[in-house]
Design a protein around this nucleic acid. Structure first.
Lengths: 362, 362
DNA sequence: TCGTATGTTGACATCGATGTCGGCTTCGAT
DNA sequence: ATCGAAGCCGACATCGATGTCAACATACGA
């Protein structure tokens, strides 16, 4: 019975489970100031590129800074100026490949801007996710937050960030569209383009595997598919539209409805690569040749798209760029004070590989 | 240098919407102290679970803390106590699936310990990687660092952390083995076990695809393979040992040496799943049936191992657990004051799937 | 030439917490 | 009853930077 305080779960309340970690002894701004023969404030001015410093002094201070290899302490900075140097990257599932590429883009851009990325997982399954999030916001004083799909569509989540005055940039959001700046690609248009690719190959009987309904991209991709089909004067029957959840397994499972009942479609468009692979594996296990007997296309250009055989025709998402742009936006936001909600739309790319081929009558 | 944007005109004042949201002013320890009728120091004591506080007071303060939903500011804490609350996770390539799972484990464990994870990429290709690293160390005041393969084997990197007194825990290092605490699995043993699996299926002519020589696991896995083979009284000829680099493409490429010259091996053990998939795809494109004509096994149990067809027999690495344990160790190491270099060895698992089958004479 | 405007500088307060230390209680042993 | 020792609590300094503001120097216009 150790004494804890407050909040039933109280794990990050700074209470007791926080272990102490000693740190190193650094060079302070005072040391630099002394050696340069000026006041600390002047050094601060030079470091932050502020005006009102004579060029000679600026230069000499800069030299001393370099010589002493001085690095300002970000904590002290954050404390006194309420400026931040951390950007939070929030994921539902940080282990997915999708997330990883975004992450890399974000890290690199953050670095370029002198910021750092803190990764946080939000798990709605835990009933205390709000407390945990608020904990992070308070403790880390985030300068901004980047949210990815699907969590970025929850109004209650956005509320929390808003209440705490943390600027948010969302990547590919699907709801509450005018609430924050965002970075996205045109899913609908891309889906249309892939579908047109299949149509151009001569396919008419095309099945569509929908994604997880909680991701907003699901609807947009479906729309793009529908656009292309109806533009071609086609109306796919209901049994050609099946429901997946973006995971490999679901692609594998829906294949039963697609391949084991009556006539087979000549092509399948799965809303993401994982599901496309699931469909492909299911086809092969039924001795249905890909792409000879059935063409399969995906969406995302995940790493695995190139590791399948045949390799997957798909849409390349600009994940890396989206991560970088998101950081960029969030910092701008921080500086500008939130004028408007810019939306950057990044270009996608149709990647044609071996899994799609001209329609051949059976 | 450009002028910075002043904070003159209220940046949080009604820019966003007509209705002004009250800006949440953070609650300080003073507020709590006042309301509880004690000194800030006493509140601090309660929060940190220090001794010398009367139970009644402790309880009443705790109640106020909970009521006010107070959260200590980590920056201020870090400043005054030179305690840290950030653990750095350093990757060469944060976008790989391997890294992602470790990451998730680390994030969760860090959370549980009241710490946060900062992700940093180290790119040796950039000539200024040292400066960048030192920047991070100074700016972030890391309480600890976790390094993954392959960068964790560079002595010069370790030197930097040592110079800056940042405790390091390495995941699956292969060199400088007694320099830091580490978390690992027994690669050699695991490789032996997979090989024995193939031997038990009746295979005798087994090829081995080596991994990237800069990863130390490459050598250990090779050793395990050699152990099992020689225990079975077998000596694979040199042409059965081929060199890859852990990437899909290399697995695909080495297949030429394996399948297009003279006799074919009846089984292939690739040092990781990606390469195994490469081999598998190459086999299928040559109309060599897997596993009927050739069994293929991998190593890692990457996500893709389940997405191939047939699914890959492989070794499941405890990545998630390794991430969590690494965080655990890095923090413990501090508390303990760096006594010794503990090494935690986590259990692996042989996962038998469809890509390996009993030997069948052709 | 003087009087403003503008530019340059540093002293000092401040951010929000913790470390130190001294004073006051309490308790137990003599 | 008295004397330590230990327990409890708060005043104050401190961490390392930046914000504020006043003092002073210089430039420019009239």
């Amino acid at each position: 019975m150790r004494d804890r305080i407050g909040r039933g779960t109280g794990d990050t309340n700074g209470v007791r489970s926080v272990v102490e970690l000693p740190v190193m002894k650094p060079i302070t701004i005072k040391d630099v100031a002394e050696r340069a023969g000026v006041s600390p404030k002047t050094v601060s001015r030079v470091i932050n590129g502020e005006a009102h410093v004579r060029p000679e002094i600026r230069e000499s201070v800069a030299r001393v800074v370099a010589e002493m290899n001085y690095r300002p302490n970000a904590f002290a900075r954050g404390l006194s100026s309420s400026r931040a140097f951390l950007v939070g990257l929030f994921f539902d599932d940080p282990a997915s490949g999708y997330a990883a590429t975004i992450q890399r883009g974000a890290i690199e851009q953050a670095r370029a801007l002198g910021q750092h990325i803190v990764i946080e997982a939000i798990t709605f399954k835990r009933s205390d996710w709000r407390e945990r999030l608020v904990d992070s916001l308070h403790a880390l004083r985030l300068g901004g937050a980047i949210l990815t799909s699907p969590i970025c569509d929850r109004a209650d989540l956005l509320d929390i960030f808003e209440q705490h005055d943390v600027p948010v940039v969302r990547i590919a959001p699907g709801a509450e569209l005018d609430r924050t700046p965002q970075v996205r690609m045109d899913d609908r248009d891309a889906a249309r383009v892939v579908t047109e690719h299949l149509l151009a190959l001569g396919h008419r009987d095309i099945a569509f595997v929908r994604g997880n309904p909680t991701h907003s991209a699901t609807e947009r991709r479906w729309q793009g598919f529908a656009d292309a089909m109806s533009a071609a004067g086609l109306t796919p029957p209901p049994e050609r539209i099946v429901q997946g959840d973006f995971r490999f397994r679901s692609g594998f499972d829906v294949a039963e409805a697609l391949f084991d009942r009556g006539s087979r479609p000549s092509a399948v468009f799965a809303s993401n690569d994982e599901m496309a692979l699931g469909v492909m594996v299911a086809a092969m296990s039924r001795q249905i040749a890909v792409p000879r007997a059935v063409s399969i296309v995906g969406f995302d250009d995940a790493e695995i798209a190139r590791m399948a055989w045949p390799q997957l025709t798909t849409i390349r998402q600009p994940n890396h760029a989206m991560g970088a742009q998101a950081v960029d936006l969030v910092i701008q936001q921080q500086a500008a004070g939130g004028a408007g909600n810019p939306c950057r739309i990044l270009p996608y790319e149709l990647v044609i590989r071996g899994s799609s081929a001209p329609y051949a009558a059976t």
